[in-house]
Structures are given as structure tokens and as C-alpha cells.
């Protein structure tokens, strides 16, 4: 076995792992607080990546799609600023979605929640296709990605972009933990995700807290989309497959465990690269199959995942 090649594949996989982890985090934050799987998370994230794309390209109606042409600032943004703008937009969209579509339903059936998120997925996807076309677009990377831009470790190349994306993910995570542990809003959020009714009794305003949760989650989603748009190319359905990986990661780690999302993302990212490399039948194109199988198996034998809380039902 070629160990340098193996190490190289692991390094390559780490980039995707970070993307899956952050999208899985978005899914977990929402599932934990609202109890729904947000199928539209990927499309919402892609939408914000298009916003970043528009901010980057400046006032070119050809690229921006008619609807947003009037809102474009005169000067193109730099890449970090554009991504920051997209993340803020994503947070606003997330908060608005919770307020306008989820809260009025007030804990409706699974079916209604699936309908809302699938509706959002379809509508957002075709809106993006209408405004920006279905063709893939080049999205610049925030990190240097040229030929020599990597560290050499034991003969394998670790790209700066991989290190960078993990640095961003981990620092945002540290911020998140600080926010949850040391602020009033964080305390309220933790209380609501454990028990909304009890939290309400002690005076926490549940609605706005959930809205912050959605904003946070969609921020993570936006980050995932903007950081991966360079490697998967920006197009309306780019996050659909990524969403399966992220759901598999979240399921594997436990749908209500942020730590699980991180670990799950790491495992799914590694298996996505390593399984096709060593199992010829799977190949690159079918790499989504092991993720799906993993998801089904986990749901069948251990629905709580690796780190999730086990739900006990009274009969």
C-alpha cells in the first residue's frame, strides 16, 4: 500500500470534511432547537453564495440577474468582504424564514414541515436558475490555490486552502461556544433547545431565540457554500449532493449534537474520498452512495448517532 498516496488522499479529504461539518452544524442547530430537518438548507446556502458572487463582480447586470441589479454597490467587494456580506445575508434570510414560515405553523406535523422546507428548496432553486442561469460559474477562492501553494508533510501536499478552511471553521466554532456559554442569548438558546416550554416558564422569549438559532445556522450554511463554491463551481444545484453528505454527517454524529456534526463531517469527508479510491465499483461519481448507506444504517441501528441523546418514548 502506498502510504504517501493514502496521506495525500486524507489531506485532500480534509477540505470537504470541513464543508460537510459546517453544513451539518447548520442542520444540527436547527434540528436541536426547532426539531425539523431543513431540506432547504443547501439551497439557502447556495443563494448566499450567489450574493457573494454578485458582490464580487460589481455592477454587471449580465451576471447579477435583473431582480438584484438595482441593489448592487458600485465597486466590487474584496473576497473576504463579499463572503462576510453573504454570511450576513444568509443570517437575515434564515431569521426571516423562521419568523415567516416556521413559527406561524406552531409545531405542526412532520408532513407540514417537510412541505415547507421542500417548497423552499424548489422555489429557491428555480429562482436562482432564473436569475443567474443554470450554467456553472467560476467563484474565486479566498485562499491562494496556485500550483505551489501547499505545505509538504511526509511527502504529501497539504494545501493552504485546506488549512485555511479548517482555521475559519474552528475559529467560528470557538466563537459559537463562547456565545453559547457566556452570553444571556446563548443561555436562552441552550434552555430553549432542551425544553421550550420550561424555558418559556422561566421567562425566556422562545420565538426570538429560535430566530437567532436559525440565523446562526444559516450563517454556517452560507460559510459552507462560499468556501466550497470554488471547488464545486457555483450553480443552482451545487449543494444538493453536499446536503446528502451533510445530512449523513449529522446523522452519524447524532442529529442533536454539534460535536457530532464536527466528527461526523470528518468521517463522511474521509470516507467520501477513501472509499471510491479503494473500492473500484463506487468510483468518484457514486461517492454519494456510501454516505446514503451510512445514513440508513445509523438510522436503523442507532438513531441517536454517535453523540446524540437517546430518545425514550413512553408507550
Amino acid at each position: 500500500m502506498d502510504y504517501v498516496l493514502l496521506l495525500q488522499r486524507i489531506f485532500d479529504a480534509l477540505f470537504n470534511s470541513a464543508i460537510y461539518s459546517s453544513l451539518a452544524l447548520a442542520l444540527v442547530i436547527i434540528f436541536r432547537s426547532t426539531g425539523l430537518l431543513n431540506f432547504a438548507q443547501g439551497e439557502m446556502a447556495t443563494f448566499t453564495a450567489y450574493i457573494a458572487f454578485v458582490l464580487l463582480s460589481g455592477p454587471q447586470p449580465r451576471l447579477t440577474g435583473g431582480g438584484l441589479a438595482g441593489l448592487i454597490p458600485g465597486v466590487p467587494f474584496s473576497i473576504p468582504l463579499a463572503i462576510a456580506g453573504a454570511v450576513i445575508c444568509g443570517m437575515l434570510v434564515g431569521a426571516a424564514t423562521e419568523r415567516a414560515l416556521i413559527r406561524p405553523l406552531g409545531g405542526a406535523s412532520d408532513l407540514a414541515l417537510v412541505n415547507i422546507t421542500i417548497g423552499l428548496l424548489l422555489a429557491t432553486n428555480s429562482l436562482m436558475a432564473q436569475w443567474w442561469g443554470t450554467g456553472p460559474r467560476f467563484f474565486p477562492s479566498i485562499f491562494p490555490t496556485g500550483a505551489g501553494q501547499h505545505f509538504m508533510i511526509l511527502g504529501a501536499r497539504l494545501r493552504y486552502s485546506t488549512v485555511g478552511v479548517w482555521a475559519i471553521l474552528l475559529s467560528v466554532l470557538v466563537l459559537l461556544v463562547l456565545l453559547l456559554r457566556h452570553t444571556r442569548a446563548g443561555l436562552a438558546f441552550r434552555a430553549v433547545s432542551i425544553s421550550p416550554s420550561n424555558a418559556e416558564l422561566v421567562g425566556v422569549r422562545v420565538g426570538p431565540t429560535l430566530m437567532y438559532g436559525w440565523a446562526l445556522a444559516s450563517g454556517f450554511g452560507a460559510l459552507a457554500a462560499c468556501l466550497s463554491a470554488n471547488s464545486v463551481l457555483l450553480e443552482p444545484s451545487m449543494m444538493l449532493r453536499v446536503l446528502v453528505y451533510a445530512f449523513a454527517a449529522a446523522t452519524l454524529g447524532g442529529l442533536d449534537s454539534p460535536k457530532g456534526a464536527l466528527v461526523g463531517g470528518l468521517i463522511i469527508g474521509l470516507s467520501q474520498t477513501l472509499i471510491p479510491a479503494y473500492v473500484p465499483f463506487i468510483g468518484f461519481e457514486l461517492s454519494v452512495l456510501p454516505a446514503l448507506v451510512a445514513m440508513v444504517v445509523i438510522l436503523l441501528i442507532r438513531p441517536a448517532g454517535l453523540f446524540g441523546t437517546k430518545r425514550i418514548e413512553r408507550v
Binding site: 412532520d110 417537510v114 446528502v244 449523513a248 446523522t251 454519494v288 445514513m295 438510522l299
Partner: peptide, 25 residues
Amino acid sequence: LRIRGIHLALVTLGLAIVFRPLSKR
């Protein structure tokens, strides 16, 4: 038989996404 509600929706969505690459095989 064991996966219910919203989780079943998730699994079937995964199936829908994996079908095209699988059929190319």
C-alpha cells in the same frame, strides 16, 4: 419499518439524489 416521519423523508430524498449516478453504473 423503523425510520419514521421526517427521517424517512431524508432517506428517500437521498435515494432520489443517488439514483442518477447509480443508474449510470
